[in-house]
Design a protein around this nucleic acid. Sequence first.
DNA 1: TCAATAGTTTAGAATTATTATAATGTAGAT
DNA 2: ATCTACATTATAATAATTCTAAACTATTGA
Lengths: 142, 142
Amino acid sequence: MPKNCNFIEKLREVGLRPTKQRIKMCEVLYNREKTFHFTINDLVKIISEKMNEKISLATVYNTVHAFEKKGYLKEISIDSHKSYFDTNTSAHHHFFDEDTHELIDCDESDIDKINIRKKITGKKINSVEVLVRVASDNQTQK
Amino acid sequence: MPKNCNFIEKLREVGLRPTKQRIKMCEVLYNREKTFHFTINDLVKIISEKMNEKISLATVYNTVHAFEKKGYLKEISIDSHKSYFDTNTSAHHHFFDEDTHELIDCDESDIDKINIRKKITGKKINSVEVLVRVASDNQTQK
DNA sequence: TCAATAGTTTAGAATTATTATAATGTAGAT
DNA sequence: ATCTACATTATAATAATTCTAAACTATTGA
Ligand SMILES: [Mn+2]
Ligand SMILES: [Mn+2]
Ligand SMILES: [Zn+2]
Ligand SMILES: [Zn+2]
């Protein structure tokens, strides 16, 4: 989704009513330079604290899932105890910082194309994604 | 963990008391030919239905986490709505069947070694795992 | 313009997964 | 056999998510 633009049109295009709440969420999610990785709680905090806008938690859940269904967001499974979402909806690889619990996108060029030799009969491959878990490299530690 | 063997010794070795419940769980988890992927609910069902053994849900949670901490089990994040565990505790790749929600191990030989060109300063790589999502390949479908 | 309508937001209740509590039970040591 | 630390259990508590039903709003078209 392009930045600094008419989210009303974008929402209409996919058949979502451009309500105040949805437009606000678009601003938070897509008015930025880089891919944004977040949890529902992150998003609620940003809207209520940084943007000083009252929004119901249920609406954030509803809207995030509406966006997901329409292809505006992608859910990422990294940590079974937390649900992450990603404004980059293409299949791509991630670094996951186990210290900060932060997700970082991996460029195409950072990892060679992955060749899968095994076939599962009757099944087609939908996506191939790599997760690289990293953590601080203090030799002094432990 | 070897199969058909003395789980009592194994448990003692890592400092877990070999209780009735833990031995039962070892039998379910490790008396099998292949890697076992399961959810807490799968495990409770197997113990109570197939093995006809009463066990408290809290004990299954406690014991799974005790095993995880001792390196007998590994948690796998695939689907943020469900927690999967794996009796194969080494870093390895998976196929995930989106139709059946089944996890399948990938052999070393099935995927070439993955070369990560990007470095994150001050961070070391803990693991590199690939998830291949597959689904039924019916041309007739949709 | 302005109701009619369908879709949306909301507060709060309900549900589900997981963890905590505290009483009871048991393994391992003496 | 007794003791003690640890484990199991039923149940309560918590946390994340979804449901419900009433109030609200964007859109349509008279
Ligand atoms: Mn979801
Ligand atoms: Mn866990
Ligand atoms: Zn991403
Ligand atoms: Zn596995």
